[in-house]
Structure formats: C-alpha cells, structure tokens
Simulated scan of single mutants.
Amino acid sequence: MTDKVLIKGNEAVAKAAIEAGCRFYAGYPITPQNEIPEYMSFAMPESGGVFIQAESEIAAINMVYGAAAAGVRAMTSSSSPGISLKQEGLSFLAGAELPAVIINVQRGGPGLGNISGSQADYFQAVKGGGHGDYKLLVYAPYNVQEMWDLTMLAFDKADLYRNPVMILTDGILGQMMEPLIPTRYVMPQLPEKSWALTGCKGRMPNVIRTLYMNDDELENVNKILSEKYKTIKEKEVRFEAVNVEDADIVVVAFGIAARIAHSAMTALRKEGKKVGLFRPITLFPFPYDDILSLTDTGRKFVVVELNSGQMVEDVRLSVNGRSDVFFYGRSGGAIMKPNEVYDFVSKIY
C-alpha cells in the first residue's frame, strides 16, 4: 500500500489531475484556489503537458474548450466569482459535448465577498449557471482523500459521457492539510475519441459546434443531451448514509458542512438521540429517491449548509411533503461549529 502523505486539499486536486492524465490546464489567480495553478505551473510542463495563466477567467475556459476539442484531458480551476465568469464557456462545453474538469473552490459571496469557505454556489453548479438546457456532473468532496479520488473519477466520467464535470469544493477543504493515500490511477475502458479535432488526413473532417440554425435541429440536439442526463441520473448517483436506519432525525449535508454535522451527530448519539447523517456526494445527479426512501417512518430532516438555503430545496423536493424539513445555515463565509448544529437538532428532537 502506498504510504500516506500530508497534503493540502488544493495540491491533492492538482496532483490527482496530472496522475489521471490531465495534460492541459488554463486558469487565472483567485484566492482560495491559487495552490492549484501554482502547482500546475511547474508540474504540468514536467509531465509533458501545457500550463497557461490566461489573461482572464473567460479566456481560460475557452482555452479549455479548444484543448478538449482536440481530445486532450483538460482542466481549469477558480473560485466563486471566477467561476461566474466561466459560465458561458461551461454552456458551450456542454452544448458541444466536450469533456473537461472544472474545480470550484468556493468562497463567500455574493459579489467579491471574502476569501472564507462557503457553499453558496450550489444553485450555480447544479441548476446550470450558464444559458440553455444543460447539466454538469457535480461532485462534492468531504475530505482531502476525496479531493484526490473524485478528481481522478471526474476525468473518467467526463470522457465517458462527453460532458464537463465539476468538483464543487470550498476554501476550507482547499486549504486544509490532511493525510492522503495517493492511489495510483488506472484508466478504465473508455470510448475512443473519434470525434476529436486531431487532423483529418485520411478521414472525413470532424465538426464541433454549438450553433444550429435549421428547423428543429437544436431541439434534436437538446433531446440527445436530455437522454444523456437521464442516463447519468440512473447510473451516477453517489451518497453516504451514516446511522440512518434507526434515526428519528436525518441531517443532510454535503462537503465540509457534512463534516461539521457528523461531529454533531456523534455527540447527539452519545446522549441516546437517534440522529443520522445523509451526505450527497453527487449534487447532480441528486439522490432524490434515496432521500425519499427514508421518509417511510416519518423521520424529520435537518439540512445543514454554508449558505442561506440552497440544497434544502432539493431535499424538500425529495421528501415530497412526507416529512418535515428544517434548515440551519451560515452564509457570507461564516463557518458554523458542531455545537451550533447540535443545539439546533436538539431543539427539534
């Protein structure tokens, strides 16, 4: 077994990306994700890849579009306001069915906000922050190990579905140092990139575009995309459920908020209060059916987020009126403590 190493979350993402075969990175500096481009700036050329500090976030995402169109495993990273600037490019990537990985190390907002950790980009990530009918596959890591593992997985799923994939993390996980087992990457069997723009000598030229002007042409493209998203919903849901079997209250949280909630759950369990934790790992596709299955006994749900209330809407859709759903959140980069969640759940219990 590979020895554990102590590593910062952002650096784990960068190392995992290179290990997974990322050979093009374009980005622009913004706190708290700067360790990613910093590491890529020297490690990417050493790995035979290309690093570009673009003139803007908009330029970076369009450079990724070009590299992805050529069949290269490509990635960009930024933090909340920078990701906002990339939204048009994300729509273009999805519309052109191009695989790419996007890292969002969230910070407090709205506006420039601050550089503290936040989860306020949930809507932007899972509901489509750009224009048109499109979806990203969105992963929410829980610790530095998942920053590594899910980054590797993201490249595979991007290639499998020809779709951009986002790692939605935050400034706390990005800056946190933890032990990590740097697992070796093994590429699964994936479809050949016969669509890539690699030169057409000896074959018909490939065309990658997102503009469709003929009658019904764009609608047919959207139908193809919708079928793809349906397949993703059927096959790619990931979650972790802890102590939910006998729980009277299930706390639902993702990412760093789930770690805070886990500490509160542990303390409540020690007092004999039956509290469980449900942690979505994929935010799209969201585990609607899996949460719905927990409503049969009339459990209550408490949603904990570092925002003003975003994922709570999907939890309410999941339970479909069968259970009470409560919300506890801190916004603007404010970080809750386990005792705050403990007190909130105790009052409801």
Rank of each mutant, 00 (worst) to 15 (best):
L137V: 01
L137Q: 02
V138D: 00
A140E: 00
A140F: 05
A140N: 08
A140Q: 04
P141Q: 02
P141N: 11
Y142F: 08
N143S: 09
N143F: 11
V144H: 01
V144G: 03
Q145W: 06
Q145T: 01
E146L: 07
E146D: 05
M147R: 14
M147A: 04
M147I: 08
M147K: 14
W148Q: 03
W148C: 01
D149Q: 09
L150Q: 03
L150Y: 03
T151P: 06
T151H: 08
M152L: 11
M152Q: 09
L153M: 13
L153F: 12
A154T: 08
F155K: 07
D156K: 11
D156W: 05
D156M: 07
D156C: 09
K157F: 08
A158L: 04
A158H: 02
D159Y: 09
D159P: 12
L160V: 13
Y161N: 04
Y161K: 10
R162Q: 15
R162P: 03
P164F: 09
P164T: 08
V165D: 01
M166R: 09
M166D: 01
I167P: 00
I167D: 01
L168N: 01
L168C: 10
L168P: 01
L168K: 03
T169F: 12
D170Y: 02
L173W: 02
M176Q: 06
M176S: 05
M176G: 05
M176P: 03
M177E: 04
E178R: 10
E178M: 07
P179W: 05
P179N: 06
L180M: 05
L180N: 00
I181F: 06
I181G: 07
I181C: 11
P182S: 12
P182K: 07
R184N: 15
R184T: 06
V186T: 08
V186E: 09
M187A: 15
M187S: 13
P188I: 10
Q189F: 15
Q189P: 12
Q189Y: 13
L190F: 11
K193H: 15
K193Q: 12
K193P: 04
K193A: 03
K193Y: 08
S194V: 10
W195R: 09
W195H: 14
